[in-house]
Amino acid sequence: MIKHGGKRNGAGRPKGQGVYGTSTKAIRVPEHLVEDIKDFSMNGGYKIPFFSSMVEAGYPSLAEDHIEEMLDMNNLLIKNPDTTFCVKVTGLSMIDAGIYEGDKLLVDSSIPPAEGKIIIAAIDGMLTVKRLGYIKGKPFLLPENPNFNPIPILENSEVHIWGVVTNILRNL
């Protein structure tokens, strides 16, 4: 009896061979994205030019036309990809820390929360961004706007710290 199709023992490329040196998986993507995905994969993400010229914040200076390197934005902004996530800010309690409504915050859950760090915390199921601090030796979530009150971290409240804010992303 002759069989056609199906899995055959020993057929196909042995795992770990080929361009990638590891097993691969075929995926379906829209044809118009194939080149973008290849470029992203082969270059390790999107990279943008980083010019060696300094930008004067005072009087203008002569610009040099020299690219120092290509910056990988993933490496620049995200130190621990497996533990980093992004949240969007609502409210005005952190404006004196430069965090405004609509900003996106990169948060790393692997960084230990410490006094003075800006954190994302869940209090009784509600998320907030505040600075971790102490008042008279007791822990508080401190706003960075005098119109808001510090939030005490009480022994009976359910507080879970999701992570430490590492970057603020904002469109100008």
Rank of each mutant, 00 (worst) to 15 (best):
M1L: 11
M1G: 12
I2W: 15
K3A: 11
G6E: 07
K7S: 11
A11Q: 02
P14A: 13
P14F: 04
P14W: 03
K15M: 15
S23L: 08
K25F: 01
K25W: 09
A26D: 08
R28V: 09
P30Y: 13
E31S: 15
D36Q: 05
K38R: 15
D39H: 12
F40Y: 15
S41E: 08
S41N: 10
S41H: 15
G44W: 07
G45I: 11
K47G: 13
I48W: 05
F50S: 05
F51D: 01
V55K: 06
A57L: 11
G58K: 10
A63W: 06
E68P: 03
E69C: 15
E69L: 14
D72V: 04
N75W: 07
N75H: 14
L77N: 12
I78C: 12
I78R: 05
K79N: 10
N80M: 09
D82M: 04
T84P: 03
C86L: 09
V89E: 00
T90A: 15
G91R: 01
M94F: 11
I95N: 10
Y100C: 05
D103C: 05
K104T: 07
V107S: 04
D108W: 15
S109I: 00
S109C: 02
P112S: 15
E115C: 03
I119W: 03
A122S: 10
I123K: 15
D124H: 14
M126G: 07
L127N: 03
T128L: 01
K130M: 04
R131D: 02
R131G: 07
Y134H: 10
Y134C: 02
K136C: 10
K138G: 06
L141T: 11
L142Q: 01
P143E: 00
N147I: 00
N149F: 05
P150A: 03
I153F: 07
L154M: 09
N156L: 10
N156S: 12
E158N: 14
E158F: 06
H160C: 04
H160Q: 12
I161G: 05
L169V: 14
R170P: 12
